[in-house]
Every structure is written in C-alpha cells, then in structure tokens.
Design a protein around this nucleic acid. Structure first.
Lengths: 153, 153
DNA sequence: TATTGACTTGAAGTGTGGTTTAAGTGTTAT
DNA sequence: ATAACACTTAAACCACACTTCAAGTCAATA
C-alpha cells in the first residue's frame, strides 16, 4: 500500500508540511518518489515515522533524530550505538513518566481543593485545613509542595 | 524564610533569568521586593512556582498560566473556572502519560531488538522474525507499529 | 576605598520546530 | 479545454520560551 504525503499526514495526525520539513532535515531518507517526483510512503515508512514520533516523545530533538537516521544508514557498524541510544531514551522517558505522575498527583489535589472551594463559595476554609485534616491521598503531594527541597540535578 | 531570585532558582533547578522572565510575563504577582528593589521569594512563592511547574508539565503555555494567574487575582469569582481548568489539565496529563507509556513500550522493544542485533553482529536475523517468534511482551507494540491506524483526533 | 558579586532593568538576540507563501507541475473531473 | 486539487520547491516568516547584553545599583569583603 502506498500513500501520498497528505494521506500519511492524516493517518499520523500531523500536517503535510511537517512531513516535508522532516524530509528536508534528513529524517526520511527511505521515502521514495513516483515518476513525477511525488513522495510515496510505504508501510515501512509508516513504521519509521512511528519510531520518530516515539523518539520525539522521549525528548529527542530533530537534530538528534537526524543523528539516529545517520546511524541507521551506517548499517551494522552502528548497532551497539543504536542500542545505547534506545537504552538512554528508555531511561529518560521513565523519568519523564515519573515526573508526569507527580504532576498528576498535584492536579488531583487541586481538583479536590477547588471542588471543596466551589462548594463553600470560598477557598478560605479548605486553605485553612492542616495537613492531617485533608484526605490522606493528598497529604504526600501537599507536603512536597510546602516543604522546600532542592532538585538534585 | 526568604530567598533571592538566585537562591530560589537553584532550589527549583531553573535559571534566575527564567524567573525574571516569568515575573515580567505576570506569572509572579505575589513576589514582594525588599527596600532596595530585590525580589524576595517566600515559602508561599515556592508553592506557587511548584504549581506553575506542574501546569507547564501538563502542557500549558506561559500565556495560559498568565490567564490562570489572573483568575487567582479575581478571587472567589473564579473558583469554578479554576476547578474546570485543573480538571482539564488532569485529563490532558493522563492522556500524555498514556502516550508516554506507549512510547516506553516501543523503546523497550527496540532495546530488545538491538540487544539481539548486537549479539548477532547484524539485525537481519531479528528483523526476519515473525510476530509469534518475538517475545510476547513485545508483540502488542510491534503490531501497533506495523499496522496502520489513523489517529482518532 | 576599591573591588567583587549578586541583584536590577529594557531591549535585543537565539534556537527550535514548524508554517506559510509564491511559483510551478501533474492528474482528474466537468 | 479548463478548472480544481494535491503535489513540488526554496525561501521567508512565525510563535514560543527563554537567554544574553548593556548599563546601572547596592552590600559586603579585602
């Protein structure tokens, strides 16, 4: 099955111009052209774009993904380099997920806080609650918010 | 306890210029100044900055956070608006976490793939494996990668 | 007293990741 | 045949989130 840039863009949920930009930046060296110069995306290209999407979500820049593309073009010489890259991205995304989960906890607390405040028509009451008066599920994050702790970065 | 911009920046793991930029953009309306015009951050300001950090992680722009700041400045009128905001951010971050977890699955697969390839000194063998020859924990993500499915966005 | 160092400001500069524009090509439908 | 539509390119443009710069203030130390 073959797709034009507009078709694959729709499937991926990104714009065609973004795909052309990726191509220009060297992220799509495998995409072939039809007789009249039109990009034809294959299922293999879809897979490749899924990997790009994944690397981007892990925090890699276009430049970094270009570097990965170059590794793939080097063939078997770069296998261990590629392994190291994916291991590093795995570590990075695990870290990101943990940070997101902490952010979620804070958002859950804020949702509770404001649902109380809306009930009371003021947030004075809920704000005045001491740590052991709030539901225990929120105590942890509430304390993290209140007590200054330097980032170990 | 009071902190200068440099001190609180160090604690938060961001730069002092970023904090001054946030102030200029109206994100820090509560930060007071000393006699000679120096910003003095309190524990309350630390808490506020933690919320900003959290909203940013949830995908909000500086402009959006400025809008939230305005809501807080409006007092009790905006309580339900603030509740809705936090509920929306909670939904958004849950979605992001799910996407990250799918990205992690793909990275795990790639780590396995390349650890095999490094062993073999080529990825031809591991690439040639059919779906039921790869460890079952990776089959799901491998199929998602291979089979085109349009995003329902 | 002079230097160091952290703070202040407004304004200009930067990098990233696209998007838009303009001019043109090729296929399809009326 | 001509209009509509999706594709092509290079180049210009854009928003965002900072970062850096230049010029100056202040408090503490040598």
């Amino acid at each position: 099955m073959l797709y034009t840039v507009g078709e694959i863009a729709k499937i991926l949920g990104i714009s065609a111009s973004t795909l052309r930009y990726y191509d220009k930046e060297g992220l799509l060296p495998f995409v072939e052209r039809s007789n009249n110069g039109i990009r034809m995306f294959t299922d293999k290209d879809y897979e490749w774009l899924k990997v790009i999407e994944c690397l981007k979500k892990s925090g890699l820049s276009i430049k970094d993904i270009k570097a990965y593309t170059n590794m793939v073009n080097q063939g078997n010489n770069s296998l261990s380099e590629r392994l190291e890259l994916f291991q590093a991205r795995r570590t990075a995304i695990k870290q990101q997920i943990m940070e997101m989960q902490e952010a979620l906890e804070l958002l859950e607390f804020k949702c509770w806080y404001y649902s109380q405040a809306v009930k009371d028509h003021t947030d004075e009451k809920v704000q005045a609650l001491s740590i052991d008066e709030i539901p225990e599920q929120y105590r942890n994050i509430k304390q993290k918010m209140n007590n200054i702790h330097a980032k170990p970065e």
